[in-house]
């Protein structure tokens, strides 16, 4: 564990609490992509299967359980409790275009051709692109509630912090995880446009609006 990774994980936790706070206080999941949230459930469930056969640390296990539980809870809130506030007609990204290629990539790039390792690779690739339905929705509506942008920023910061973590681990432990690093760089790259608008508008006190 190092400073960057800890801060990244805390940022990830913060993003989930911000999202829950947004849903609970506005009593609405308007502006949140159900598809992206469903993909996160798939990511966590496929990656954290190792809860059953690998123990890393108490921190690691507790975080894994939290990410699985919270992502399922968010889906429940969107699907049942606040269902009327979700508009599927603007959440139209075709996720089969993400699931299929990620599955094929995981068959090609994995550390061992075994069930759990293929699912692990799949989850890494899927996480890299899981935000796309959400960003696509943002692009379509052209604006977002400020709290939603804080959620996305925290999620993006979490990914960005994993990059210095990998650099640090390379120099201190000689450790390189090419699959995670490649997917992680792609994933962080997807946030660059968003970050630009977030830093130049939202953090200056303006509303998140994309140019027409």
């Amino acid at each position: 564990m190092n400073f960057f990774r800890l801060l990244g994980d805390l940022s990830h936790l913060a993003s989930i609490f911000i999202l829950l706070h947004k849903i609970q206080t506005t009593r609405s999941c308007r502006g949140i992509s159900f598809k992206t949230q469903a993909l996160y459930v798939a990511v966590f469930v496929t990656r954290y299967l190792d809860l059953f056969f690998r123990y890393v640390s108490l921190y690691n296990s507790v975080m894994k359980l939290f990410f699985i539980a919270s992502s399922c809870y968010i889906l429940y809130l969107m699907k049942y409790k606040y269902r009327p506030t979700h508009d599927p007609s603007i959440d139209t990204f075709r996720i089969e275009y993400l699931l299929g290629p990620c599955f094929v990539l995981s068959l090609i790039f994995n550390y061992k051709f075994s069930f759990s390792e293929i699912l692990w690779s799949f989850s890494i690739f899927l996480e890299a692109v899981a935000i796309l339905p959400q960003l696509f929705m943002l692009q379509r509506t052209g604006e977002a509630e400020t709290i939603t942008t804080h959620y996305l920023a925290a999620l993006g910061v979490y990914r960005a912090l994993y990059i210095p973590n990998w650099i640090y681990r390379y120099f201190t432990e000689g450790l390189v995880d090419p699959i995670a690093v490649t997917a992680g760089i792609v994933q962080t790259g997807l946030y660059l446009d968003f970050f630009y608008v977030y830093f130049t508008k939202v953090l200056q006190g303006q509303k998140f609006e994309l140019p027409a």
Binding site: H12, S114, Y162
Partner: peptide
């Protein structure tokens, strides 16, 4: 199950 690599990150 035997580990191919250690996945200690989240």
């Amino acid at each position: 199950e035997e580990d191919a690599v250690s996945h200690d990150e989240l």
